[in-house]
């Protein structure tokens, strides 16, 4: 907002020519302010932190021997929390952002300003990413402190990688959500579509993939699974987290070739690259469609 005050106001049509970081950040800040004012950021952060704390607290086995606590249970629990909750929240928040403003009418006002459409799209994305990252960091930070004070269940490097991958998951699903939000004509439509995507990617896709994996021909299954992995960001994040926490033997001998590929050198970059594409591509498409759209 401060930036707009400083620069001379250009006509709306001409002002859309270039991409300006300042204007984008203003949109992002406004988006974050909205989420702070509407209290959902606080509520989500607190709920996420409480769930993470409960999971890490329940992991203590009470065996009386130091070090033999339920490490897998905790990580599996945290992983499931991340895989269920974060995509859902990201999709719901992202889907309702642009579609919601369009329905509320505030988008019209925003578009009369000298601001590029891509600045709005990316600004919304950055603002929501920052809000959700704040919530995730609060939750994981609190849980990490409890773990460190209690049993120190987790290796610090593993934990940091876990949190980073959780943030990446948020970014991927927010990007998808923004695309949905741009495409949908109504808020309710966007929300419905978002939940459908969540259901499809988190549950249906995996069920089908499990079906593929139980095919008997192991030679054909492994490349197919790698392909299936690349097409589902949630699965990629899960596999990367498990490889980081449990090592490559976790997935067993049959998948040794796959886990080796994925956890070393080029394969690792392939997965991280795919995740980046998953963040960038939907966002780029959203910018494109939002710029072309005539009926706001």
């Amino acid at each position: 907002m401060d930036h707009n005050q400083g620069t001379p106001r250009e006509p709306a049509v001409g002002g859309r020519a270039g991409f300006c970081w300042g204007r984008m950040l203003s949109v992002a800040k406004k988006e974050m302010l909205d989420s702070i004012r509407s209290r959902w950021l606080i509520i989500f952060a607190v709920v996420f932190a409480i769930l993470a704390l409960i999971i890490s607290g329940l992991g203590m086995s009470g065996l009386g021997l130091a070090g033999y606590e339920g490490f897998n249970r905790v990580t599996a629990g945290l992983l499931n929390l991340v895989l269920y909750l974060l995509p859902l929240i990201s999709l719901v928040m992202g889907a309702s952002s642009i579609a919601g403003e369009r329905e509320g009418g505030s988008l019209h006002v925003l578009l009369t300003q000298p601001i590029h459409t891509s600045e709005i799209v990316i600004g919304k994305f950055v603002g929501l990413s920052l809000s959700l990252t704040t919530a995730v960091l609060t939750g994981f930070g609190g849980a990490g402190l409890i773990m460190a004070l209690g049993s120190g269940l987790m290796n610090v490097k593993d934990y940091v990688v876990f949190v980073l991958l959780a943030v990446v998951l948020v970014l991927v699903f927010l990007s998808l959500a923004i695309l949905i939000s741009v495409l949908a004509s109504k808020r309710s439509q966007a929300l419905g579509l978002g939940i459908f995507v969540w259901f499809a990617l988190i549950l249906v896709y995996d069920f089908m993939a499990i079906g593929v994996a139980s095919l008997s021909a192991a030679g054909a299954v492994v490349p197919l699974l790698l392909l299936l992995l690349l097409f589902n960001p949630a699965d990629m994040v899960r596999v990367l987290v498990i490889l980081q926490l449990g090592g490559e033997a976790t997935f067993g001998p049959t998948l040794a070739a796959l886990t080796r590929t994925v956890s070393h050198g080029a394969g690792q970059w392939l997965l991280l690259g795919a995740l980046l594409v998953w963040i960038a591509a939907p966002l780029a498409l959203a910018c494109l469609f939002f710029g072309r759209k005539q009926d706001y």
């Binding site: 499931n80 995996d206 095919l215 001998p253 998948l255």
Partner: peptide, 23 residues
């Protein structure tokens, strides 16, 4: 899920997945 895993080990890739938990 563990039953499937025992029958075809490749299923193990979906360890800790929400789908496995749902099953």
């Amino acid at each position: 899920f563990t039953f499937l895993m025992a029958r075809s080990p490749a299923v193990r890739l979906f360890l800790n997945s929400p789908a496995a938990a749902a099953l």
